[in-house]
Design a protein around this nucleic acid. Structure first.
Length: 751
DNA sequence: ATTAGTTGTCATAAT
DNA sequence: GGATTATGACAACTA
C-alpha cells in the first residue's frame, strides 16, 4: 500500500514536473512566435485544455499557423518557425518513435505469418551464434550498447527499404550484426521470455507439430539459427531481403567496415561522442544504477537499457530518445487513475523502460492519442505550470548556464525541476505527505482491488494477501489463507506480479518479474510446509486420512480391531502376519498420549477428549467412573492435544507473517528500484529538456537586436518569462533581483 | 555422524 | 478463576 501511495505520489509529482516542463516549453514557444493565443490559453486556461479535441485543435492551430505564415519578416518568421518546430518537437518525440513502432508491428506479423522468425524472435541464441563470427567483444559490448544500437537500428530499419540480393561475406556479417542488434531491440525482453519458455515451447512443439506459428518461429528459428548463421535465408523470411537494404543504408551512413567492433563503434560513437550531454548526469545514473543493482537484481537489465538506451546523441537521437519519456506522461496522466494503480504501477514503469530498448515501440503507438490527451490535460492543468513559472523567473539560477550565455532558462529548469525532484525524493523517502496520502489513498485502494482482479500486481497482491492472511490467519481460515497465499505465490511465479499492467507493456518488467518470481519460487518449500500445516486445521481434521486414522485408532478402547479392519486393508489381506504388522504400524502411528490412554484404559477416543466442547467433555467424563489417574491423564491429553493444535497454528501463522514480510520486502525493493529508474528517467529527460530550452534561449537571445541592430550582451540582458505568457528582455541586475524574490515565495508556499 | 527441518510438549502469558 | 489460546523454548524424531 505504502509503495503504491509512493508510486502515485511520485507519479503526480512527475506529472507535475512534466507539466511544468511542457508549460515552459510552450511558453517559450509562445514567446518565440510572438503570439499564440491557443498556447497561452492552454497554459493558463482552465479545464478546456483537458479535452482531447482541444489539444488537437491546438495542434491544428499551430500547424495552420505554420502553414499560413502571415506577412512577417521572413527571416524572423522562419527562425521563429524553426524554433517553434523544435520546441514542439519536445512534446512530439514520440512521432519518430511511432514510425518505428509501425515498422516493428509490421514485422512481427510477417514473421509469425511466414512461420519463420521475425528478427525479434532471433533472441539471444542468434546473437550468441553470431558472436562467434563477429568476435568476442560483441558479447560484452552488446549489452552495453544495446540501447544505443536499438535506436540507431530502429532508425535504420525504419528507413531502410527491403531489398533482396546476394550477400557478400561482409554483408552477412553486417546482417548478423544488425540482426543481433535488432534482436536486442525487438527481442530484448522476449529473449528472456524465450529463454524461460524455450523448453516448454520445444516440448510443445514436439507434441504438436507446427501447430502454432508462434511456437514454430521460436523453436525452429532458434534451432536453425543455432545451426547456421545464414538461417535467415533458411527461414525464408523477409528479413534476408530486408537486411541487404539495411546494409546499404548502414554502409552509407557508416562508412566503416563490416567489422563488428568497428560497426559498433560507429554506431555507438554518435551516441557517445555526439552527446552534448555532460557525463555528470550519466554518472549520476550509473551511480543510481549501481545502487539499484546492489539492491535489486531485477534492475540490471532494465537499468542497462536505460543507461544506454538514451545516451543523448545527435539531434535525432536526442529527439527520439525523448520518446521514452513520453510514456511517462501517459502513465502519469489521468489514465493511471482510471486504469488502476497497481497494474499501472508497473505499466508506468515498464513502458518507459521497456519501450526504450525496443524502440519505445509498439506500446507507444496505441498510446499516442492518450498521450496527447495527457499532454493536453497537462497543458490545461497548468496551475501547476503557474507554480513553475516563478522559478523560471529566478532564471539566473546557479545551476549550469550555458558556457556562452548565462541561461535563465537553465536556471529555471534546474531550480524548479530539480527542486521539485528533490522534494519528490523527500516526500518519497520521508513518507507521505499526509494530504496527498489521504487524497490518494482511496484511489489506491480501489485501484489495487481492480488490479488485483485484472492483473496481478505485486503490490496489490502482497497487500491484499497480507491483510487477508494476517487478519484471518486464525485456525478456521488458515486453510483458505494458505491456499490463497500459495496460489498467489504461484501466480507471482508464473505471470509474476505482472507489473506490465497495461496490455501492451511487456518485456523488461516481465523479465524482472520472472527473475523475481524465481526468487519467490524459492520459498515454495515453505509454502508446502505451510499448506501441510494448514490442512491440519482442527476443522479439517476429520477429512484428513492420517488424522482420521488417528481418530479411529483411538477408539481402540471400544473396538480397535473392528476399526482397524474397516480402515485398513480388505478382508482378504487380513492374515495374521499382516494383522500384526498393521497393529505395529498402528501402534507406531499412535501418539504417546494415545498409548497412555490405551494403557490407562480410557473409554473414549483422544479425538473426543481433545476436540469436544467443554460441556460435552464434562458430560462424557461424568458418564464414566474414572480414577484420579485417568482423569488426570485425560486432562493432560486434552491439554496437550489442544496445545498441539495451537502450536501448529502458531507456526503456520508465523510462517505466514514471514512470507508476507518477505513479499513486502520484495515489493518495496521493486518499488524502490522502479522509483530509482523513474528518477533516472526523469533526470535524463529533464536534462534533455533543459538543453533544448537552453539552446533555444540562446538562439532567441542571439537574434535579438537593439535599435541600432546590435546584439544584446548576454551579460547585461536576459530574457524573462512572465506568468502571463509574455517575454521580456530585461537587464540582468533586475532579473537577478526578481529571481531572488521569486525564489522565496514558492518556498514559503511549500512550507 | 552430522545437520537441518519438523513435530510434540511444556511453561508461561494472554485472552 | 478456569478454559482456551498463543508463543518461546526444548527435545525427539526424521530425512
Amino acid at each position: 500500500m505504502l509503495s503504491l501511495k509512493k508510486y502515485l505520489t511520485e507519479g503526480l509529482l512527475q506529472f507535475t514536473i512534466l507539466l511544468s516542463l511542457i508549460g515552459v516549453r510552450v511558453d517559450v514557444d509562445t514567446y518565440l512566435t510572438s503570439q499564440l493565443p491557443p498556447l497561452r490559453e492552454i497554459i493558463l486556461g482552465p479545464s478546456s485544455a483537458y479535452t482531447q479535441t482541444q489539444f488537437h485543435n491546438l495542434r491544428n492551430t499551430l500547424d495552420g499557423y505554420g502553414v499560413h505564415p502571415k506577412s512577417i519578416d521572413l527571416d524572423n518568421y522562419f527562425t521563429a518557425r524553426r524554433l517553434l518546430s523544435q520546441v514542439r518537437a519536445l512534446d512530439r518525440f514520440q512521432v519518430p518513435t511511432t514510425e518505428v513502432n509501425a515498422w516493428l508491428v509490421h514485422r512481427d506479423p510477417e514473421g509469425s505469418v511466414s512461420g519463420s522468425q521475425p528478427s525479434s524472435g532471433l533472441t539471444l541464441e542468434s546473437s550468441s551464434g553470431l558472436q562467434d563470427v563477429t568476435g568476442p567483444d560483441n558479447g560484452v559490448r552488446e549489452s552495453e550498447t544495446e540501447q544505443g544500437f536499438s535506436e540507431d537500428l530502429e532508425d535504420l530499419g525504419a528507413v531502410a527499404p527491403p531489398v533482396s540480393g546476394d550477400l557478400t561475406k561482409e554483408d552477412i556479417d553486417l546482417i548478423d550484426i544488425l540482426w543481433r542488434q535488432d534482436i536486442d531491440l525487438g527481442a530484448g525482453r522476449e529473449t528472456f521470455d524465450y529463454s524461460h519458455r524455450q523448453k516448454e515451447q520445444d516440448v510443445d512443439k514436439e507434441l504438436q507439430d507446427g501447430a502454432e506459428q508462434d511456437d514454430t518461429w521460436s523453436g525452429e528459428g532458434a534451432e536453425a539459427l543455432a545451426r547456421n548463421l545464414l538461417v535467415d535465408g533458411e527461414t525464408g523470411e523477409s528479413f534476408p531481403a530486408q537486411f541487404p537494404a539495411d546494409i546499404s543504408s548502414i554502409t552509407e551512413a557508416v562508412p566503416s567496415e563490416s567489422e563488428p567492433p568497428g560497426l559498433q563503434n560507429n554506431l555507438l560513437s554518435p551516441l557517445l561522442t555526439g552527446t552534448d550531454s555532460p557525463f555528470d548526469l550519466e554518472q549520476q545514473w550509473q551511480d543510481l544504477m549501481s545502487i539499484m543493482e546492489m539492491q535489486a537484481m531485477e534492475v540490471n537489465t532494465s537499468t542497462n537499457e536505460i543507461l544506454y538506451s538514451a545516451p543523448p546523441g545527435d539531434p535525432l537521437s536526442t529527439n527520439y530518445s525523448l520518446a521514452p519519456n513520453t510514456p511517462i506522461n501517459q502513465n502519469v496522466s489521468l489514465h493511471q487513475a482510471s486504469l488502476g494503480g497497481c497494474s499501472q504501477d508497473f505499466s508506468l514503469f515498464s513502458p518507459e523502460v521497456e519501450s526504450l530498448p525496443v524502440a519505445s515501440s509498439s506500446t507507444l503507438l496505441p498510446l499516442v492519442p492518450s498521450n496527447s490527451t495527457s499532454l493536453n490535460s497537462t497543458f490545461g492543468s497548468t496551475n501547476l505550470a503557474g507554480l513553475f513559472f516563478p522559478p523560471q523567473l529566478n532564471g539566473t539560477a546557479n545551476d549550469t548556464a550555458g558556457p556562452e550565455l548565462p541561461d535563465p532558462l537553465g536556471g529555471l529548469l534546474d531550480e524548479a525541476m530539480l527542486d521539485e525532484i528533490s522534494l519528490m525524493d523527500l516526500a518519497i523517502e520521508e513518507g507521505f505527505n499526509p494530504v496527498q496520502a489521504s487524497q490518494l489513498e482511496e484511489e489506491f485502494d480501489s485501484d489495487s482491488g481492480l488490479s488485483l482482479d485484472s492483473s496481478h500486481s505485486p503490490s496489490s497482491l502482497s497487500s491484499s494477501e497480507g491483510s487477508s492472511s494476517s487478519s484471518s490467519s486464525s485456525s478456521s481460515s488458515s486453510s483458505s489463507s494458505s491456499s490463497s497465499s500459495s496460489s498467489s505465490s504461484s501466480s507471482s511465479a508464473s505471470s509474476s506480479f505482472s507489473e506490465e499492467g497495461a496490455v501492451g507493456y511487456s518485456s523488461d518488467s516481465e523479465t524482472l518479474d520472472l527473475e523475481e518470481a524465481e526468487g519467490a519460487v524459492g520459498y515454495q518449500p515453505e509454502y508446502s510446509k505451510f499448506c501441510r500445516m494448514s490442512y491440519q486445521d482442527p476443522s479439517q481434521l476429520s477429512c484428513l486420512p492420517y488424522l482420521e486414522h488417528v481418530g479411529h485408532n483411538h477408539t481402540y478402547n471400544m473396538a480397535p480391531s473392528a476399526l482397524d479392519s474397516a480402515d485398513l486393508p480388505p478382508p482378504s489381506a487380513l492374515k495374521k502376519g499382516s494383522k500384526e504388522k498393521q497393529a505395529d504400524f498402528l501402534d507406531k502411528q499412535m501418539s504417546r498420549d494415545e498409548h497412555r490412554a490405551r494403557a490407562m484404559k480410557i473409554p473414549f477416543t483422544n479425538d473426543k477428549i481433545i476436540n469436544l466442547p467443554v460441556e460435552e467433555f464434562n458430560e462424557l467424563l461424568s458418564k464414566y467412573q474414572l480414577s484420579e489417574a485417568q482423569l488426570s491423564l485425560i486432562r493432560d491429553i486434552r491439554r496437550r492435544g489442544k496445545n498441539k493444535m495451537a502450536a501448529q497454528n502458531c507456526r503456520k501463522r508465523k510462517l505466514d507473517t514471514i512470507l508476507n514480510l518477505e513479499r513486502d520486502v520484495e515489493d518495496l525493493q521493486r518499488d524502490k528500484a522502479r522509483l530509482l529508474r523513474e528518477k533516472v528517467e526523469f533526470l535524463r529527460s529533464l536534462r534533455q529538456m533543459k538543453q533544448k530550452v537552453q539552446s533555444l534561449y540562446q538562439e532567441v537571445f542571439g537574434r535579438l537586436r537593439d535599435e541600432n541592430g546590435r546584439p544584446y550582451s548576454p551579460s547585461q540582458y536576459a530574457l524573462q518569462y512572465a506568468g502571463d505568457g509574455s517575454v521580456l528582455l530585461i537587464p540582468r541586475t533586475l532579473a537577478d533581483q526578481q529571481a531572488r524574490r521569486q525564489e522565496r515565495k514558492p518556498k514559503d508556499r511549500r512550507k
